[in-house]
């Protein structure tokens, strides 16, 4: 297919793709070009890539064991030899703890992302497409969950099931899905009456096929955008639970828990709480920037005509 004179770029940008794979790659490449033109989004993507790399190679990157205590070397300031970001109240290296903490952060984000948007998408599209009583019942349930203050419900949940990362994740996911459900329902309502859905119904397609193959692909792009924008909130909620002592338990180097520990010394040894705080800030910002960029690429309203 690619002749010698034709570069890979030309092949990807061809107006007449020759196979299914070619068409999909071409569409993907065009999206990538749009995203690449957005510098802020690329910065966000770079930070997230860095975070992923850090989490993946934590044992090689971290200069010290994050759990080893050295009480003789406690509360060292920034730039101490061997401890670039200083040490905490038990003499543990803050940089190493932050590097290992990136794993926990990613773990929480990944778990929430696997639960909340998918549950929301299911509930929202079914409610929107079925209409009638199904819609009313599902949406009232959504309203009930939406009415709970997030942190309070998470507190109650953790109190009932015990503290720990998994329960914190469940608690966050439980309070995070209703906005996705509402969004998916609103989109489904506009999509379901469109001609292309009527057309596929006239081919004899059943509701399951229409929802999964025709409505989901149109909802998913705005959902992805929304998830990346919410990522910051999820990280902050997890850090908040950690801070309250209801998320990750010591000695786990979760960023929120680290801030909580550093709080006691914040006036005299400010860096102990500030460094993990900066990490949370940077990662949240990165997800927000990427989310903004993805909105430009994925929004079906812009790319459809």
């Amino acid at each position: 297919m690619t002749t010698e004179t034709q570069t890979l770029r030309d092949w990807l940008l061809s107006e007449t793709p020759t196979s299914r794979r070619h068409a999909r790659l071409a569409a993907f490449y065009k999206g990538w070009l749009t995203l690449r033109a957005n510098h802020m989004a690329m910065i966000g993507l770079a930070i997230i890539a860095l975070l992923l790399g850090t989490a993946l190679f934590a044992p090689w990157l971290a200069p010290h064991d994050p759990f080893v205590q050295d009480l003789a070397f406690r509360l060292q300031p920034l730039g101490t030899e061997g401890h670039v970001l200083g040490t905490d109240s038990l003499g543990r290296d803050i940089l190493s703890r932050m590097i290992y903490g990136s794993r926990i952060t990613l773990y929480i984000v990944a778990l929430v992302v696997m639960i909340a948007p998918i549950a929301g998408l299911l509930v929202g599209t079914i409610a929107g497409y079925a209409g009638g009583w199904t819609d009313i019942v599902l949406m009232r349930i959504t309203d009930i969950f939406l009415a709970f203050p997030r942190l309070i419900l998470a507190l109650a949940f953790v109190a009932a099931l015990g503290a720990g990362i998994e329960n914190a994740v469940l608690a966050i996911a439980l309070t995070a899905w209703p906005p996705y459900a509402r969004m998916a329902r609103a989109e489904t309502l506009t999509i379901r009456s469109s001609d292309y859905i009527s057309a596929i119904r006239l081919q004899g397609a059943g509701p399951m096929r229409i929802i999964t193959k025709h409505i989901w692909p149109l909802c998913i792009s705005s959902l992805i955008v929304r998830v990346t924008l919410d990522m910051a909130g999820i990280i902050l909620a997890a850090a908040g639970l950690g801070f309250l002592g209801l998320g990750a338990q010591p000695p786990s180097p979760e960023w929120g828990a680290m801030i909580s520990e550093g709080r006691r010394f914040i006036l005299d040894y400010w860096w102990i709480a500030t460094m993990p705080g900066l990490a949370i800030f940077t990662v949240s910002l990165a997800f927000n920037l990427l989310g903004d960029g993805l909105r430009d690429v994925l929004d079906p309203k812009d790319s459809s005509s």
Partner: peptide, 26 residues
């Protein structure tokens, strides 16, 4: 049936191949 507005009657995220193949499969 053939619909009035061809801008509204084709799924914006499906290629011609997907539209026709799915119809034929159905």
């Amino acid at each position: 049936m053939v619909f009035q507005d061809p801008y509204a009657s084709l799924h914006p995220r499906q290629s011609v191949d997907q539209v026709l193949s799915e119809t034929l499969t159905l």
